[in-house]
Structures are given as structure tokens and as C-alpha cells.
Design a protein around this nucleic acid. Structure first.
Lengths: 223, 223
DNA sequence: GCCGTTATTGTACGATCGTTCAACAACGGC
DNA sequence: GCCGTTGTTGAACGATCGTACAATAACGGC
């Protein structure tokens, strides 16, 4: 009888790989069990490792959660940037790609909202979470402002082709605030009650809002 | 020497009074410590009572938290209705009162947002919280739709005074979805970063959005 | 095939959690 | 002033939490 091949009790992984697996397990636990899923034992069971391993790769639980938050943020912003990058190079097409990505999976999902909400709930009392927020939020703001700036400059240029198509920082600021609010609000509403409207309606509402914004700014300029 | 007046070790309260005090303490703990403030010991300390008293007035912690959520919701909706009730009886004045109340204390407050966020985080996994949400959210929706209906009917009536000023349910539905989204989004943004714009700007943005909505609907009708 | 490195395990510890419950005491009724 | 009702206390319980740590074993280098 051939000697049985002894199966290893566990498999060693590169720290980088294991860290990422633990981060993924953390997010999965948040989706499944909400805030109560954020325990060392729940996460390690989800990842298929022992309780002690987490503290070998992360100094403590807060840092693991912060790393998961960082990854979650990066996934969102990265997905958005990629969607915009795949679109045609016109301001309209880029903005439409951004809106479509905002109102489709994996962003438009009740599980995803649940994860965000738990992270937000920690924001005020967790230093690591605050650090991640500060680092990553700027990327998102830059993306939105960039898309809006292109659109507004074009709208200005069409109305006043002979002059500079500059858009004032104040105008851009207000436009970004408004669009972000409408976007987040619609996204929130849909995730909380998915049946009440279709994602395409949300995209349409944002586009209507943007176009009326372009007209308004151009109108102000002509005075 | 006069006999010292023995000070009572504690004061008995009517169950109604004590329950309300425990609810207030729960909300206060949420404001101060976030999700981690939601422990029996933290809450009882905040209320100045012993750990055992909570389970004398509430069957368990979840029911106390749900009662706090119910109270928090009722405070919001009640405050809004009162603000609208104090306004002049014109649709514009009522809507403006609603918007002003939305973008001022106690609603527009980072502490308040923190409390909401913790409640939202429990929504998917706590039956009692779901029950409260179902009971109270309808009141808010009814208020917003009522205010919008008045405005839209008036806008319709002015454009077509000779005919019925009816507003289709589909139009009202879309209007309510959009206004709620813009409102919530702006409210969220302000609470997260209070410095970026003034509350009055938020009110103005909502009013601009509503007026363009009125024009749009009236325009559709004229075709 | 042995060895050193280190990823991994699993027990153990102290703290804190929600809940229970017997004892206590405040206060109204008489 | 005594009594019954019951709001209130605080110790105790078992469960679960995050973390520490010594033992283990997988795997690459030689």
C-alpha cells in the first residue's frame, strides 16, 4: 500500500496575499452581518484561518478595519475612473459613463450601502478611519470636479466662443456640491428602497440637473 | 443637635418618566460615543441609574434602542410639521419653512448625523429597528409629497387657469424622489464637512431645483 | 535530508458584554 | 407608624470580546 500523501494542515501565504484575503473577509462579514460581523472570530472564520493570525498581519483590529475601508474606497474610485476612461473623450460621454457607473453594480447595491454605513458610523471615533477618509476622499472630489469643469467650460465656450471659456472656482464649487448631493441622495434612496425607481431614471435626473446648471451659468455670464 | 435629614438613596419615578429618561440617555450616549456608547452600562451611567433598571423598563437592549429610534424619528417629523404649521399658508412659504427647518439645528448637526448613521447601520439586522422604520418613514414621505403637491398644483393652475390643475401621480412621485435626494444629499454633505457651504446656500439650491421642476412640468403640459 | 525562518495555530487571559435575580427601600394609603 | 406595592439596586452569571504568546509546522535554501 502506497504511503498516504500527508495533507498539510495549512498553507503558508505571502504576507501580501494573506493581508488581502483578510481584508476581503472583513468586507464580506460586514455585508453579511453588519457591525456585529466585525469581530476577530467572525472574520477569521470567514477567511478560514485561526484567530491569532489577524494580529500577526495587523497590529490590531482597528487597523484591519481601516485597511478594509481603504480598499473599499479605492475600489469605488478606481472603478469610477476606469469607467470614465473607457468612455469617449467628450465631456458628455465621460459624465454619462460616470453616472452610469454610479447607478449600477457593484455600487448600487444594498449590501454595499450597508458596508458604507458601518464605516461612516465609525468615522467620528476611530482615528485610523479618519486617516483613510482624508486620504481617499480627495480623489473622488477631484474626479467629480474634473468632469464638471469640462462640461461647464464647454457650455461657456458655446455661448461665448470669442472669449475665454473660464469657469469661476465659485461656480465649479457650487456645481460639485449640488451634483454630489443629488447623486448621493438618489443612490441612498435606491439602496434603501430599490423598488421605487429605476437606475436609468436616476441617471436622467442627474443629467437634467446638469444641463439646467449649464444653462444657468451661461445665462449669468451673458448679463 | 437636630436629627440629620436622611437623604434618600434614590428617587422613584413613574415608569413613563423613567422610560423617557432612559431613551434620552441612549441618544446622548450615541451622540457622544457612537456605536460603542450603546452598552447597558454606558447608558445607565449616563442616566444616573443602576445597570439593572433598564431591564425593568425594557425587555432587552434592542427594544430600548428601537424606542430611542422611534423617539428620534418622531422628533424629526414632529419638528418639521410644526415648522410648516407656523408658516404662512401659501405653498411657497410652507416649502420654505420646511427647507429652513431641514437646514438648521437640531437637524443640521454632526452629532445628529452620527446618531442616524448608527441607527441605519442596524436597520438590516435588527427586527425592532425595521418595525420602527416602517411605522415612521411614511409620515415623512407624506409631508414631503403634500408640500410638493401644493406647489405643483399651483404652478399648473397659473399656467392653465381655465383647466383642472391636477398633477399626475407619476410627476409627483418623481418630484418627491428628486427633492428628497437633493435634500438628503446636501444635508449629508454639510454634516460631514460643515465648512464647505452655508445652510442658506443649500436652501437656495433646493428652491432653484423646485422652481425648475415647476417650469418643466408646466412646459410638458403645454405641449 | 536537514535547518532556519516565519507564517500559522490554538489556548489562555482579563475585560466587558447583556441579562438575571434576590434584596432593598421609597412612597402612598391607611 | 406600619404595610404593601413596586421602582431600584448591585452582585453574579455565562458568553464573547480583542489580544498575547508559546508551540507548531510549512517551505525555501543549502
Amino acid at each position: 500500500m502506497a504511503r498516504a500523501v500527508r495533507k498539510p494542515r495549512f498553507e503558508r501565504q505571502l504576507p501580501e496575499v494573506r493581508r488581502q484575503a483578510l481584508i476581503a473577509a472583513t468586507i464580506e462579514c460586514l455585508k453579511r452581518y453588519g457591525h456585529e460581523g466585525l469581530s476577530i472570530r467572525t472574520i477569521s472564520a470567514q477567511a478560514g484561518v485561526s484567530v491569532g493570525l489577524i494580529n500577526h498581519h495587523f497590529p490590531n483590529k482597528d487597523e484591519l478595519v481601516a485597511a478594509a475601508y481603504r480598499y473599499f474606497n479605492a475600489e469605488l474610485v478606481g472603478g469610477m475612473q476606469a469607467a470614465v476612461g473607457r468612455a469617449r473623450a467628450t465631456p458628455q460621454a465621460r459624465m454619462r459613463a460616470f453616472l452610469n457607473a454610479s447607478f449600477s453594480a457593484p455600487n448600487l447595491d444594498a449590501d454595499t450601502l450597508a458596508v458604507w454605513v458601518v464605516f461612516w458610523g465609525m468615522y467620528r471615533h476611530s482615528r485610523p478611519i479618519q486617516r483613510v477618509q482624508r486620504d481617499t476622499y480627495q480623489d473622488y472630489v477631484r474626479l467629480v470636479r474634473g468632469l464638471l469643469l469640462q462640461l461647464l467650460q464647454q457650455a461657456n465656450g458655446r455661448r461665448r466662443p470669442q472669449r475665454s471659456a473660464a469657469v469661476s472656482p465659485a461656480e465649479l464649487r457650487r456645481a460639485a456640491i449640488g451634483l454630489t448631493a443629488l447623486l448621493d441622495g438618489l443612490w441612498l434612496e435606491w439602496c434603501l428602497a430599490p423598488g421605487t425607481f429605476r437606475p436609468a431614471e436616476a441617471v436622467k435626473m442627474c443629467e437634467v440637473w446638469i444641463s439646467s446648471l449649464c444653462e444657468h451659468i451661461a445665462g449669468e455670464r451673458r448679463r
